[in-house]
Amino acid sequence: MTAHLDPKKTALLSLHMVNDIASPDGKFGPMFSEQVVARHVIEKSKALLAYGRNQGFTIVHVAVRFQPEHTDLVTNSPLLTIVKDLDALVEGTWGADFVEDLYPIDGESIVTHQRVGAFQDSSLNQVLQQAGIEHIVLFGVVTNNIVEHTARNGVDYGYYVTVVEDCCSAPTLDIHNASIENMRLVADIKSLAEIQA
């Protein structure tokens, strides 16, 4: 694994840090927010974003969003069925918007998708290729879905992958830890402090 993060070749990917998923008042709040709060994920992610911006990393914000009435949603999994049942992540609503403390700034890319992983049927790979990216650094909610799925796909697309462990969370700490252990064979696992160092 490459320990040094070359700013010209590194992208920081904020994954699903939208209100319906990462906020206590979001549609998925009862499922995900306890660990977001307990692990201080928003605060740590804010510090990570600030670091990435200061270093000159390419910043990409990935959001899962659907059209009203979920006309573009394929409910072929329990998770996606729950999205429809909760009427969650609808384009143009507060729930589908980014958490205030992690909002994109001018010049940062926003990638929207409708599948479990960020690469599938999205512009993510094109955005990264156009920026000359070789190494992607991931954080977000939830660890065992968007983060792990994107880490594995990222490796398949040829990127070096780093996951910032304490800027991620899952429904429970046990699930988070199991997912992190699953990713150790495909990604470099770092803490926020290790990245900043």
Score class of each variant (00 low, 15 high):
Met1Ser: 08
Ala3Ser: 09
Ala3Lys: 05
Lys8Asn: 13
Lys9Cys: 06
Thr10Lys: 14
Leu12Phe: 13
Leu12Trp: 07
Leu13Pro: 09
Leu15Val: 04
His16Ser: 14
Val18Asp: 00
Asn19Ala: 10
Ala22Tyr: 12
Lys27Thr: 01
Pro30Asp: 04
Ser33Cys: 06
Ala38Tyr: 09
Lys44Cys: 06
Lys46Asp: 12
Leu48Asn: 12
Leu48Gln: 11
Ala50Lys: 13
Gly56His: 03
Phe57Trp: 13
Thr58Asn: 06
His61Phe: 04
Gln67Glu: 14
Pro68Arg: 03
Pro68His: 02
His70Gln: 07
Val74Ser: 03
Pro78Ser: 04
Leu89Val: 09
Leu89Ser: 07
Leu89Tyr: 07
Glu91Ile: 05
Thr93Val: 03
Trp94Ile: 07
Asp97Glu: 14
Glu100Pro: 03
Asp101Ser: 15
Leu102Glu: 11
Tyr103Gln: 13
Ile105Val: 14
Gly107Cys: 01
Ser109Thr: 13
Ile110Gly: 12
Val111Phe: 00
Thr112Cys: 03
Arg115Pro: 00
Val116Met: 08
Asp121Val: 05
Leu128Gly: 09
Gln129Pro: 01
Phe139Ser: 11
Val142Arg: 00
Thr143Arg: 04
Asn145Asp: 03
Glu148Gly: 05
Arg152Glu: 05
Asn153Ser: 14
Asn153Leu: 15
Gly154Gln: 04
Val155Gly: 05
Asp156Thr: 15
Gly158Val: 10
Tyr160Ser: 12
Val161Gly: 10
Cys167Asp: 08
Thr172Gly: 02
Leu173Cys: 05
Leu173Trp: 08
Asp174Gln: 06
Ser179Met: 10
Ile180Arg: 11
Glu181Leu: 15
Ala193Met: 12
Ile195Ser: 06
